[in-house]
Nucleic acid binder design. Sequence first.
DNA 1: TTTCATGTAATCATATATGTTACGTGATGG
DNA 2: CCATCACGTAACATATATGATTACATGAAA
Lengths: 154, 154
Amino acid sequence: MKRNSRLSVALHVLLHMAEQADKALTSDVLASWAATNPVVIRRTFAGLRDAGIVGSTKGHGGGWTLLRPLDAVTLADIQAALDEPLLALGKAEESPGCMVERAVNAALDDAVAEARRLLDECLSRITLADLAAQIGPRRVVLQAAGCKDPHHES
Amino acid sequence: MKRNSRLSVALHVLLHMAEQADKALTSDVLASWAATNPVVIRRTFAGLRDAGIVGSTKGHGGGWTLLRPLDAVTLADIQAALDEPLLALGKAEESPGCMVERAVNAALDDAVAEARRLLDECLSRITLADLAAQIGPRRVVLQAAGCKDPHHES
DNA sequence: TTTCATGTAATCATATATGTTACGTGATGG
DNA sequence: CCATCACGTAACATATATGATTACATGAAA
């Protein structure tokens, strides 16, 4: 339990979902992939649902489904949907009386805005399809051999 | 008390120091500028001292001094000296057995490395002199009138 | 109408950052 | 030589953030 692993979790789960495309998967299943709690999945995926990346249905046979092809979802999309801070820069005081501190805050605001823009551009160049293509070849062999989801050792 | 305000604090204090150049200033004085505790200043400035940006001397008349001209210190220098994480992206698991998660980790590592590079380049273009130049003109008037450091209202 | 699955609030646990206290070390001045 | 000053640092306290867990409401399907 450390520092903002929501993007990591979301990517991991989304890629697993892609392998079971068009099947509604429950929060419990997704949670077991990410070794976390179903409620954590629902919270994390709420943003993705609002962004139209995944859909959810209730009741029998319900669960989560991917709504877009892998090459139509960028890491920037996911990051934005999760609404995370991304940058760990804070200000000592929000509206200081000191003129020096105001100048510092203004400069940092500018730098952070620029950094966000650069980061977003960087993340928007990577799609889920790119990540799927980089999954080790050993997995393909296992899949071909008909093994049932040997995802984690637990 | 929020999130990683060390860069903010460091910049604020360094700019105040620049106004009293060549005078050794105690941690207590710097702390009163940043409205914090002297020990926090010592901790924060330890990295700056190791990086050769400031120096510290003990005993009577001791304290902290700026060792470089304002235009020879970039925000990237300070950020690196503070050794902060900067990016709030973490991984769910450090060395996962799941191939999918490994691919995610690898991709995120690459993206974070690239982002760090971009950020560093962005911060290395701003010097303390640039910040000093952007301090509001009202302050100059007060300085000229001989007012003694009306930095904060406390 | 019972069961299943999401939606969400509330609470707990833990990690990180900052604030504070206490004490050690070295340098200066008397 | 020793009292004082200021940094160096460990130890502890507090605040915030994130994730885990519990509990319950809502809606859909068998």
